[in-house]
């Protein structure tokens, strides 16, 4: 069976560990690909991507800038900004780009909702 693929981009090791644990224990039919920033994410050779979870505040490009590129590289991928920056303006930026917004720390039930 072909696994679905989720890309996680976050410069925090802890944040990646938290998501990794949920994905590996709850979603065995998903493959998790990790990157610590936008540049590393874009250097990945993945040809298929179903879901991308992007931190906003990262070295180099931010999550919104990365989302704009991923939209072109992976048409149809579901994109979510996962950030501790919960200001209304930040949510509006995500809405304007047509991507989802998830508050950090990411909750298991939220992942259940979008990965089902």
């Amino acid at each position: 069976m072909n696994k679905k693929r989720v890309l996680l981009v976050d410069d925090s090791s802890l944040a990646r560990m938290m998501v990794r644990k949920i994905v590996t224990t709850r979603f065995p039919d998903w493959e998790l690909v990790e990157a610590k920033d936008g540049a590393e994410a874009l250097s990945l050779a993945e040809t298929t991507l179903h879901l991308a979870l992007l931190d906003f505040n990262m070295p180099g490009m931010n999550g919104i800038e990365l989302a704009e590129i991923l939209m072109i590289k992976y048409p149809g991928v579901a994109l979510y900004l996962v950030t501790a920056n919960i200001q209304e303006r930040m949510q509006q930026k995500a809405d304007a780009l047509g991507i989802g917004f998830i508050k950090k720390p990411i909750a298991e039930n939220k992942l259940m909702e979008i990965m089902r």
Partner: peptide, 24 residues
């Protein structure tokens, strides 16, 4: 390194909440 990363992430979350309050 991991403990420092975790502490930074907590700060990040804390400042995110503080910024949301200040932004309002």
């Amino acid at each position: 390194e991991l403990e420092e990363d975790a502490l930074k992430e907590f700060f990040n979350m804390g400042l995110g909440m503080a910024a949301a309050s200040l932004s309002e």
